[in-house]
């Protein structure tokens, strides 16, 4: 009897291996339109639609995992999920720790937003999210940098006067500026930053990287990626 139970357990375990194709996708869920939580409480956004389509094309079963931005890379390398798809720009510093697929959003502009258009973005106090390329850029620009854990707090810092301006992806800031009723305005010139947005993977995961690269290739080739970018980021967004 004991043997029977054991072998059933072993069988159940091996059945698990056979479908080991589940890929866990890590995202932040706080950065519209890239990824956010919708009214129904589910993950939504450009990257969620894109990720599901990529998984379909690569014949993978995917599951979404939410993780806060601060610990998104440590949790990837320790294996809690298999990809990062969270509006993460491809940079050399990150590339030393993890691997990236090719970009699925071309290099896009970052922009300053302030309460008045003549805010001092070069020498004043500028807010940015911790561990982003924007924060790295401000640190070297000569302005005083204050960092926040979430994008929401960076914008709040400008509204309550703690910072002179906020520096973030232009696509994130655009809807906020549009609906602020004139309280928030663009300031300074736009800055092109980073090597586009790509999917982050563990360096040892070459096979998965190849699968996603092929899927991104096929979406670039048949124009669906461009259509998706325009749907979420508007007519003026940079496409391939």
């Amino acid at each position: 009897m004991k043997k029977l139970i054991l072998s059933t357990a072993a069988l159940a375990l091996t059945a698990g291996f056979a479908m080991a194709d589940t890929v866990r996708m890590g995202t932040e869920g706080a950065y519209p339109p890239y990824n956010f939580i919708n009214d129904a409480g589910n993950l939504d956004g450009f990257e969620i639609v894109l990720g599901n389509e990529l998984c379909k094309r690569a014949s993978l079963t995917c599951e979404w995992v939410k993780n806060d931005w601060d610990s998104i890379i440590p949790n990837l390398v320790s294996g809690n999920y298999d990809t990062i798809i969270a509006g993460m720009s491809i940079t050399d510093e990150r590339d030393e720790v993890i691997d990236f697929t090719q970009n699925y959003i071309p290099p896009a502009d970052s922009a300053y937003v302030a309460t008045s258009a003549d805010a001092d973005v070069a020498g004043g106090v500028v807010a940015a999210q911790t561990a982003t390329i924007q924060a790295g850029y401000i640190a070297e620009s000569g302005a005083a940098l204050i960092e926040f854990a979430t994008p929401e707090e960076t914008v709040a810092a400008v509204r309550n006067g703690e910072a002179d301006a906020v520096f973030a992806d232009k696509d994130y800031l655009a809807p906020l500026v549009d609906e602020s009723g004139g309280e928030l305005v663009w300031a300074g010139a736009d800055v092109p930053l980073g090597g586009g947005v790509g999917m982050g993977l563990r360096e040892s995961d070459g096979e998965l990287k190849a699968k996603f690269n092929a899927a991104i290739d096929s979406m670039k080739a048949d124009g669906t990626l461009n259509a998706l970018i325009i749907e979420w980021f508007g007519e003026n967004a940079a496409t391939y």
Binding site: P32, P33, D39, D44, V155, A156, P175, L176, E179
Partner: peptide
């Protein structure tokens, strides 16, 4: 957090 009409009905 701030919600804009683009991504939320509220």
């Amino acid at each position: 957090g701030t919600k804009t009409s683009k991504f939320s009905a509220y």
